[in-house]
Nucleic acid binder design. Structure first.
Length: 433
RNA sequence: GGAGAGGUGGCAGAGUGGUCGAAUGUACCUGACUCGAAAUCAGGCGUAGGUGCAAGCCUACCGUGGGUUCGAAUCCCACCCUCUCCGCCA
């Protein structure tokens, strides 16, 4: 959510900056709503004030045993009108809040202008894509030839866009998550957290998934055999960002506690509505996948340095695994709803002969913090909104795909990167059965 | 699943219709005393919004949402959460 004070002061400027990301901000509507709100609020509060004064008088008179008829008569007329004004005011405030909740974050000044991914800027590349002296297979072929990746079984059990892994591949998947967690806790100073995979609507609003992106989410009724009204829905998390960032919702922490750095390994659930034709083959786009997520809460002045550091933490994983990648600075139109600045890390996939997103690292500035009232306090000072950041470190399923494709051998086996050996129980290759 | 108790300021804890945004204790901040500290004493000490150049004034908030009333922390309804006992369970 944007700062309403900023909108009141300069809606035109905000509209201009939002246009850079392809969002049409209706400044006229905002101004009209605000003007009416202001009038109604002032009038309502005046009426409330009068009622309170008169009611106190009644209390005093009764205390002294005097007659209250005159005052009672005066206050009697106030009731209906006041009720109407209060209703109108709260309707207006809800309208303004709904309006604001659908406005995306302002892009940081360093973000390139552009409306889609073609305007993204490559920041750097790491590693050299390997050249193969045999025909490369994609991860689906490799996994199925190993006899360790089974999409047919997943379709039978659940449906499309799920997968079943077995044996060494399942272990490799687990090893990846363990390796990432151990790196981030041991080397990068993050605190591991375990969090719920089902969250309430307030949490989804806090990080910005709601109200705009309901269709991307899976949800369940809070109780079995219950009609699903909004309040009674629990949502499956689309990323650990949601439960982890919401740890700070409605909290005020001492400035000494910052920065807070959390890492969580969770499954993620996405309905992938509207992407029916894309990445239908393989594990690239699944309804359920695992991810190790990095989350930071920092002082506002530190958040851009923290974004660089956090992105670096994700890059370290790719480097240790020996996976070639490139770092992209997203343009204004390609960033997520809540982000002020985002770097995507894209890993090299030989079978697709291209780089594919494996991590997305964003600074949300105070956008999420304002929605969820996540604040810090210096000494006895006034609470201030902190800045939130997060990034994948990394998406486990896609990392697995990258390993299968980059480290495949002519005989159908796959070499396990050395960094993962401690978690592989002596297994250094996956070999077809 | 059954039975009961309860949700009040950072914490503890009063308050069952009328100057209650809320006693008291404690923590915290400022000042006095002290070489310094402790102890003691005095004052301060929630969040959000509106209005004003400002001092300030006003409004809302006692788990959440409704309702009754001139007036609700207090009464009524629904929901959420916590705790205790029994049952069940990884």
């Amino acid at each position: 959510m944007l700062d309403i004070q900023l909108l009141r002061k300069d809606a035109a400027l905000v509209a201009e900056r939002l246009a850079a990301r392809g969002f049409a901000f209706d400044a006229a509507r905002f101004d009209a709503l605000e003007a009416e709100r202001k009038t109604i609020q002032t009038r309502t509060q005046d009426a409330q004030s009068r009622r309170n004064t008169l009611s106190k008088q009644i209390g005093m008179l009764k205390g002294k045993g005097e007659d209250t008829a005159v005052v009672m008569a005066e206050v009697a007329g106030l009731g209906d009108e006041l009720k109407q004004m209060e209703a109108r005011l709260s309707a207006l405030q809800a309208e303004i809040s709904d309006f604001l909740m659908e406005v995306p974050n302002l892009p940081h000044e360093s973000v390139a202008h552009g409306l889609d991914e073609t305007a993204n800027v490559e920041v750097n590349r790491w590693g050299t894509p390997r050249s193969f002296d045999f025909a490369v297979r994609d991860h689906v072929d490799i996994g199925e030839r190993l006899g360790q990746l089974d999409f047919a079984a997943a379709v039978k059990i659940t449906g499309s866009r799920f997968s079943v892994m077995k044996g060494g591949l399942a272990r490799l998947h687990r090893a990846l998550a363990q390796f990432m967690l151990d790196m981030h806790t041991g080397e990068h100073g993050y605190t591991e957290v375990y969090v719920p995979y089902l969250v309430n609507a307030d949490s989804m609003r806090g990080t910005g998934q709601l109200p705009k992106f309901e269709e991307d989410l899976f949800h369940v009724p809070r109780y079995a055999s219950q009609e699903c009204t909004d309040v009674d829905k629990l949502y499956l998390i689309p990323t650990a960002e949601v439960p982890v960032t919401n740890l700070l919702r409605d909290e005020i922490v001492a400035v000494e506690a910052l920065p807070l750095k959390f890492v969580a390994h969770t499954p993620c659930f996405r309905s992938e509505a509207g992407s029916y034709g894309r990445d239908t083959r393989g594990m690239i786009r699944q309804h359920q996948f695992d991810k190790v997520e990095l989350v930071q809460m920092v002082r506002p002045e530190d958040s851009y340095a923290a974004l660089e550091a956090l992105t670096g933490h994700a890059e370290t994983i790719l480097q240790k695994l020996g996976l070639p990648y490139r770092k992209m600075a997203l343009c204004s139109g390609d960033m997520g709803f809540s982000a002020a600045k985002t770097y995507d890390l894209e890993v090299w996939l030989p079978a697709q002969n291209t780089y594919r997103e494996i991590s997305s690292c964003s600074n949300f500035e105070a956008f999420q913090a304002r929605r969820m009232q996540a604040r810090f306090k210096v000494g006895q000072g006034k609470p201030e909104l902190l800045h939130t950041l997060n990034g994948s470190g990394l998406a486990v399923g896609r990392t697995l795909v990258a390993i299968l494709e980059n480290f495949q051998n002519a005989d159908g086996s796959v070499t396990v990167p050395e960094a993962l050996h401690p978690w592989m129980g002596g297994m250094d290759r996956l070999i077809p059965a």
